[in-house]
Design a protein around this nucleic acid. Structure first.
Length: 198
DNA sequence: AAGTATACCAACCGCGAGCGC
DNA sequence: GGCGCTCGCGGTTGGTATACT
C-alpha cells in the first residue's frame, strides 16, 4: 500500500529550519492562491517541502498579525483558565488569544505554566473544587454536541444564553474583548448551568 | 574559559476527521 | 459504503541559547 500522502517524504523533502528565501516564496504563493491546498502551494512555490510543513510555517510564523513573545499576565491568566476548562485543546485556546498560535501556547504551557501550576496548585473555581482531566474531556465532547444541537436549533439549554456558536461549532465570542476576563466568568457560570458544577 | 544543565522554541510525526469521487 | 486525499490537531523531538558550576 502506498504511503499516506499527508506524510512528508523523509528522503526527498527539505527538513529543518526555514530560510528567508523559502519564507518569501511561500508567502508569495499564498498571497496569490490563498492558504489552502498546501501540497500544491508547496509545489507552486518550488519548495522542496511537504504541504504539512508549509502549513505549519504559515500558521506559526508567516500569517499576518502574529504576535511574538512577551505573553502578558492577562494572556497567561486566560490561558490557565481556558486550559482548566478545555484541557489540551490548544487550537481552541489559541482562538481566544488574538495573534497567538496553538504551537506557541502549547510551548508556553509546557515550559512555563505546567510547572507553575504544579507549584501552587490553586483551583480557579473554588477553594476545594478541582476537575479531573477525564471529566474535562467528557465535558468538552459534550460541548461539541451542545454546539451541534444549537446549530440545528434543537438546543433548549442555550436558547436564552447571550453566547452564540460560530461556524466552527464553538462558542462565538467575537463580541467579547478576548483579554477582558468578565466574559470568562460568565462562561464559567454557563458551564455550571450546563453541567451542574460544582 | 570550558563543560554541563536547563529553558525555550521551531519543526516533525502520527492520528483522526472531513470531504469528494 | 469504501477509498484516497487533504487538513488540522496534539504530542514529541531536536537544535540553539542561556544560565550555572
Amino acid at each position: 500500500m502506498a504511503p499516506r500522502s499527508s506524510k512528508c517524504n523523509k528522503k526527498e523533502a527539505n527538513r529543518g529550519a526555514w530560510t528567508a528565501e523559502e519564507d518569501q516564496k511561500l508567502a508569495q504563493v499564498i498571497e496569490i492562491h490563498g492558504p489552502k491546498r498546501w501540497r500544491s502551494v508547496a509545489a507552486k512555490a518550488g519548495l522542496n517541502r511537504c504541504g504539512k510543513s508549509c502549513r505549519l510555517r504559515w500558521m506559526n510564523h508567516l500569517r499576518p498579525n502574529i504576535k511574538r513573545g512577551n505573553i502578558s499576565d492577562q494572556e497567561e491568566d486566560l490561558i490557565v483558565r481556558l486550559h482548566k476548562l478545555l484541557g489540551n485543546r490548544w487550537s481552541l485556546i489559541a482562538g481566544r488569544l488574538p495573534g497567538r498560535t496553538d504551537n506557541e501556547i502549547k510551548n508556553y504551557w509546557n515550559s512555563h505554566l505546567s510547572k507553575k501550576i504544579k507549584q501552587n496548585e490553586k483551583p480557579v473555581r473554588s477553594s476545594t473544587w478541582q476537575e479531573p482531566a477525564s471529566t474535562v474531556k467528557t465535558k468538552v465532547l459534550d460541548m461539541d454536541n451542545v454546539a451541534k444541537r444549537s446549530e440545528e436549533g434543537t438546543s433548549k439549554t442555550l436558547e436564552d444564553s447571550k453566547f452564540s456558536f460560530g461556524g466552527d461549532g464553538f462558542f462565538d465570542f467575537s463580541n467579547e474583548d478576548p483579554l477582558n476576563l468578565e466574559w470568562m466568568s460568565e462562561f464559567l457560570e454557563l458551564d455550571e448551568t450546563l453541567y451542574g458544577f460544582p
